[in-house]
Design a protein around this nucleic acid. Structure first.
Lengths: 344, 344
DNA sequence: GTCCATCATTGGAACGTTCCAAGTACCGGC
DNA sequence: GCCGGTACTTGGAACGTTCCAATGATGGAC
């Protein structure tokens, strides 16, 4: 071995290639490739020699070349929404990026104005950028995105179950009903018997699901339903709804979101009442502000959600025929009790 | 032209390639490439014929192949932070994705535990994934990331100026001092003469910069400085600091962030005082919660910031020798007056 | 009509990887 | 000593694009 006779090619920023590693180890490029991708084909001492060369040269396979050959980019698409965040998306984004990296996948972002525009963007991202699949969020009744992707055989997974009962794609969701049920049980255990609910406007989807947990808990305990109010996810509307609710004299309120929970807190303060002692309040999502305001809240296990999303979609991508039955995963959130419901 | 005799290659999901377009237009693949990348080399009638073929076949160049040849991925890296978001990052993310798409660039995410881990991740992303450059956020004194990148000739741009006076990379920032100055001027114009400041712990960086704007406005108006308190960006700490500040009897408070602004609002409500009439309050960042709580705030022009980031880094990437002098851009935020400072 | 310059187009190779089919060596059985 | 199999290794082509150098066509000057 005379000196450091690297046979690296020019215009390559001096990076090692399969060829340079092969030369160093005294084998063919194909064998180096096999060591990395199909080790069982290679004799162990040869493999050892190749691995040494890989280490010495700091070789790392070049994605674009692999991608050109295999049509796999190891990149997943994720839409970033324009709508004001509820504080959940950031955390999901981070967890998803982490979970993907663990399996050697990356996340690429795109934006779109509405579902139709998103659908139009798929072909560009799939054909031209070779994205391996898409992670979709905020599923809603009448969502046409998943069926579009399914028709074209493009892998996807949704964070959020399909609300129209369709069944052609894997999904991961958090059991909102279980979350509000835990919150309600927590209040019942603390002795409350007049427990109201502040929710979103009626309609199939996340809002109704969360409300059903509150109902189920009360029914199971044979406690009559407390007052109910519904409004949009807005602090001002929430204040008005909270005022109406409080006039009905509940001792506790379960809220469909932290924003509405905070609205209740604000209304309580306005009335000179103390959250947690006079009226107990629980929110949903465990956002930063809830944390800061001491609002009890239901925490979504976003790290697990992200992990499951990546697991499900990579399984789909890496399945030979692409014909595995779609898996589902429904995760249970946990209650984080704080001062607003009498804790700590 | 007998029928639809597309000469598309197999294993290609039926996508058109340079070759199939060339065959259809009756020219060589190279000419098709020239039409798309160097139109001045091609006679106009030929170009027209090629463009027709492109349209008919729905041809779109394949990124991986181009990337393999040119070593340009048209992808920018962006780190997504674990830290609880201040509500600014989401909006920046969306704006950046949009701005990048406009120039045919995409954003790829990565995570890292600390700056050193991020530095370690660069080579993987740059060498293996061929990222064209990085957009860095949350610059801070003693930031070693930019010099590392500069040493290796890897393009980057930062959202946030370098706080150690270094000058080897382009950056975009929002003039925090101008923002607090506008806020203070707004309060002065409303007749306030005892204007306090609630800031972060002293030290070079964003916090001191924002405080300096408050000072400058008061000095220019020859009004004495009101009371000052400093604490971390936390609602609980903020409440205590706000209490101390209010005891000093200011008629208005400028806050370094919305979180601390909300802390002041909470403390005011506790005391039975009305924000906007009894004491005026202004926050910083114009987050969703500020909007909902009616907190006046300083709005960062994130769309412009993102646009500038993309413009600066693409200029760097696409400059032939890579040796353009680093540009800087300091954007001015705007005040959004709300009820908490007597508006609307 | 010859020569040179310019314009438009083309052919061949290369980027770094993986697929496929073809090799080579070894080994045991008969 | 030939045969067939198994274990390992390799050569050549291909993925779709761009770079580089070479080719052919056109036109004006002399």
């Amino acid at each position: 071995m005379p000196g450091s006779g690297d046979s690296r090619s020019p215009g390559n920023r001096g990076r090692a290639t399969l060829g340079s590693v092969a030369a160093r180890a005294g084998v063919s490029p194909q064998t180096v490739s096999n060591v990395l991708n199909a080790p069982h084909l290679v004799r162990s001492d040869t493999a050892e020699r190749v691995r040494d060369a890989v280490r010495e040269l700091g070789y790392r396979p070049h994605r674009a070349a692999r991608q050109l050959r295999t049509r796999r980019s190891h990149v997943l698409g994720l839409r970033v929404e324009a709508a004001p965040g509820d504080g959940v998306f950031d955390r999901f984004l981070h967890a998803l990026t982490d979970a993907a990296a663990e399996r050697d996948y990356r996340i690429m972002l795109y934006t779109a104005r509405g579902d139709e525009a998103e659908i139009a963007a798929y072909s560009e991202l799939y054909d031209r950028w070779d994205l391996d699949g898409f992670v979709l969020t905020s599923t809603h009744p009448g969502d046409r995105r998943t069926s579009h992707l399914a028709d074209r055989g493009i892998p996807c997974v949704t964070f959020g179950r399909p609300w129209d009962g369709s069944d052609h794609h894997p999904w991961v969701d958090v059991d909102g009903a279980a979350g509000t049920r835990a919150a309600t049980d927590h209040l019942l255990a603390a002795g409350h018997r007049r427990i109201g609910f502040l929710g979103w406007p009626a309609g199939p989807g996340v809002g109704d699901d969360r409300m059903s947990g509150w109902q189920a808990a009360l029914d199971a305990a044979e406690v009559p339903h407390g007052p109910v109010a519904r409004c949009h996810n807005d602090l001002t509307e929430g204040r008005a709804a909270a005022a109406a609710l409080l006039d009905a004299g509940p001792t506790a309120l379960v809220c469909v979101s932290d924003v509405l929970g905070l609205a209740v807190l604000a209304e309580l303060t306005e009335r000179g009442l103390q959250a947690g002692t006079d009226v107990a309040v629980v929110g949903f999502d465990d956002t930063d502000v809830a944390q800061m305001a001491g609002l009890s809240s239901v925490h979504q296990p976003l790290v697990e959600v992200a992990g499951a999303c990546v697991r499900l979609i990579t399984r789909l991508i890496e399945s030979p025929g692409g014909s595995v039955p779609p898996e589902r995963e429904l995760l249970t959130p946990t209650l984080v009790p704080r001062a607003s419901s009498g804790a700590g």
